[in-house]
Amino acid sequence: MVSYVIKRLLLVLPTIFFVTLIIFIAIRLIPGNVVDIMAANNPTTRLDTKELIEERLGLNLPIHIQYGHWVGILPDDGGDFDGLLQGNFGRSLWTNQPVVEMIQTAWPVTLQLGLMGILIGVAIAIPIGVLSAIRDNTWLDYVARSIAILALAIPPFWLGTMLIVFPSIWFGIMPPIRYVYFFDNPVANISIMALPALVLGLEMTGTTMRLTRASMLEVLKADYIRTAWAKGLRERTIVTRHALKNAVIPVITLIGGWFGVVIGGTIIIEQVFSLPGLGRLIVSSALTRDYPVISGLVVMFGIGMVLINLVVDLIYTALDPRIKPS
């Protein structure tokens, strides 16, 4: 089993390599020079300082060497390895703060938002999907499917905005001004995070519910369900013991997708609700063209997704007794 895991990890390496490559190339494609942009924003920069900065940022070296430095597989002048692999994601162009530090303060917020969102999404989507399949083609089914389809169409930034605006107009509830961390004050924190998590969860409900329903319907058509009926078991037992376990397996593959939705959705939702998480960080770094920050974040998200998908794959293998790791 361990050797199987290692084998899968190795297979994933080329993908990770490409992720870093894509981001590296994207940044290098910037028309003009990073330094020019810095200078444009800071008119007092002198010409020789520009060259110094270029040298410091390593922009005068050949491209593959730059890449090697950035990733941390080639040593820099001092002989040290100091790149992504060593945990050095660079520093903000404007504040000079290490990107890693910026990530450290922001990620708990996003993590909490993501987890709450997934929980809410799953708690809504799976039971409705199952019910929808069992009561196929009844009014319950149609209502559920309509909700799922609507959930897919509702723009999260709009829904979030509505959930801020209308409670304020109708009930006079104003959105909180400052963020409160969970361990400082759990109650206040949950009250701040509840609405954002709900909106995030809704984004996931659409696809999850549809897949759960489709998967359940497939399972219910199976011969072994017919056998279960022929054995005289009650419907409840058939659904929970026989059908569910089989139906859930394809839904597991969605977990990777959930993280994708979380990462993508968090960007919008943190903007709408003013949460100091990774999403807001990435937006601000895009707005200010803070390349080290944005490339560091995208690399992190990209590799994270690849690894999450790998984990999901492994869980899938472990769950289905028919699949043997070979």
Binding site: A222, D223, Y224, R226, T227, A228, W229, A230, K231, G232, L233, T237, R241, H242, K245, N246, I249, D320, P321, R322
Partner: peptide, 29 residues
């Protein structure tokens, strides 16, 4: 069903639940 009248189906491979042990499928009834 399963108690006084029992049924055996044509394709046993698809008629048995793949994610449940054989023992469980037997003891259910």
């Amino acid at each position: 069903r399963g108690n006084r009248i029992a049924m055996i189906f044509q394709d046993a491979t698809t008629s048995l639940n793949p994610v449940l042990t054989v023992g469980l499928q037997l003891s259910e009834s």
